[in-house]
Nucleic acid binder design. Structure first.
Length: 474
DNA sequence: ATGTCC
């Protein structure tokens, strides 16, 4: 164990090395189960590297906060490491509004209502995009959307074709799509443009630029007081179905090959096997769905802003970044297959994999806080290479949903949202009871998490985003 | 996370 740096340690587990990027205090708060899970994951054959970010906590089969790397040649793919919300991620849009335009609490309420009118948040809700063909979205990602949903000022279609979005289209063998039953197709089609529940949200925020990185902030188009829109959502029922149908084939292959660990929920197969390949293909269809889904929600928020603030209101895309996926990457000459579960890529300035508009500065890496706390726009540091340019994806859950409901009162939650004050963070729920398990008390302190990421020299803060209003599902 | 156990 390395004790020189309080923000990094290498742990020599029976099955292999685990790298942990977290302050001592956060590491000690993680608990034994987290290490047990790492030891299971490290038993998957041919694994080259595994790490935790400071928000690491127990998930199904694998911890949230995991980066796990294989070589592309002898690689394995694991539906458990990717997780069931395939393609879940963050999207940030920059408006031409200033926070003073939203100073009036009644106006923030109107905006939240206008967003809710266009983006259903309740269970079983239908989205308002039935004119879009699901098949086009699954096959072609953002490029499968009708042109009216991709206005130039919003996501530039010309030039380098949607490169402000990390991956506007994931290519794969589309025959795999036939394996998903028709009922799921219908459900997923209805769900286009819907938010989903749990930790998913749409938040309206005000930007504060970090002085030390003002040059980068300005080149990204960020200004102090500027209003940003942050969206956190995934692939809804489609990703879940991919996990279920394709995952069960992966289990069969795993058993046939005599593979497995003490955790039956940890599922994996060789990338080269039929089941592994099939999962990897369908996973990409879910990535296409998730990116398009966030895009459509941002489009709906843009429409809501035009209703409240007038036709000149704009929402230009800053970035879209996933935190649950696996995919091919390269490091020098090495061809790799990298899994990120609750971790996100943060490439530094000059890295060739940055999309063209961010080649020089590094791309925005998006870290949401919990409800009522700040979110951060980060940029990768060059030293992040030792963690395959992975950083955490949020504050990380501190206690279970049930434990939070036992511990936290509605009044405490309301006070952390400053309910009843002129500067209240307006939320779409009249009764906070329904989303009590998403209160800040359910999560680790995002500022400590950011401190760990910065001090471990994985990434730097470019801007802090303070919440003004939030839309949550249930 | 998820039409969360039709």
């Amino acid at each position: 164990m390395n004790t020189n740096n309080p923000y990094y340690r290498r742990i020599d587990l029976p099955a292999g090395d685990l790298h942990v990027f977290a302050h001592d205090k956060l590491f000690h708060a993680m608990g034994a189960k987290v290490l047990e899970m790492a030891n299971n994951n490290l038993q998957i054959p041919n694994i080259r590297y595994m790490s935790y970010t400071p928000d690491a906590h127990v998930g199904v089969g694998t911890c949230i906060g995991t980066t796990a790397v294989w070589g592309a040649e002898d690689g394995f793919v694991s539906p458990s490491i990717v997780g069931s919300d395939i393609g879940c991620g963050m999207r940030v849009h920059l408006t031409n509004l200033h926070e003073r335009d939203l100073r009036d609490v009644k106006l923030r309420r109107k905006l939240v209502k206008a967003i809710e009118k266009r983006i259903p948040v309740e269970n079983h809700a239908r989205g308002y995009f039935s004119d879009i063909r699901l098949e086009d979205v699954l096959r072609e990602g953002l490029h499968g959307l009708p042109g009216k949903y991709v206005p130039d000022a919003y996501t530039p279609r010309k030039a380098t074709s949607l490169t402000h979005v990390e991956s506007s289209r994931f290519h794969y063998d589309e025959d795999a799509l036939n394996r998903i039953p028709e009922t799921v197709w219908h459900r997923a089609h209805r769900q286009l443009g819907t938010l989903g529940g749990g930790n998913h949200f749409i938040e309206v925020q005000a930007i504060s630029v970090n002085e030390a990185n003002r040059r980068i902030a300005e080149s990204w188009g960020l200004q102090d007081g500027q209003v940003a829109v942050m969206i956190h959502s995934g692939s809804r029922a489609w990703g879940g179905a991919v996990n279920q149908y394709s995952g069960s084939e992966v289990v069969k292959t795993m058993h046939r090959l005599g593979l497995g660990t003490s955790d039956p929920k940890l599922v994996f197969a060789p990338l080269a096997s039929e089941a592994g390949l099939n999962y990897a293909n369908l996973m990409k269809s879910a990535l296409n769905f998730a990116v398009a889904n966030r895009h459509l929600m941002a489009f709906a928020v843009r429409d809501a802003c035009k209703e409240i603030f007038g036709a000149q209101a704009e929402l230009r895309t800053l970035y879209d970044l996933m935190h649950n996926y696996a995919g091919e990457e390269s490091r020098g000459e090495e061809a790799l297959f990298v899994h990120r579960k609750g971790t996100t890529k943060a490439l530094p300035a000059g890295h060739p994999d940055n999309p063209e508009p961010y080649r020089e500065t590094g791309h925005p890496a998006l870290i949401p806080g919990s409800m009522g706390t700040a979110s951060y726009l980060m940029v990768g540091a060059p030293e992040g290479e030792r963690n395959y340019h992975s950083i955490c994806h949020g504050a990380g859950r501190l206690r279970s949903r049930n434990a939070t409901k036992q511990l936290v009162t509605v009044d405490e939650f309301a006070s952390s949202l400053r309910i009843g004050r002129e500067d209240e963070i307006v939320v779409n729920h009249k009764g906070l009871e329904a989303i009590l398990d998403e209160s800040p008390q359910a999560y680790k302190d995002v500022d400590q998490i950011i401190d760990s990421v910065v001090s471990a020299r994985l990434a730097d803060v470019v801007a802090k985003c303070r919440p003004l209003a939030a839309v949550k599902g249930v």
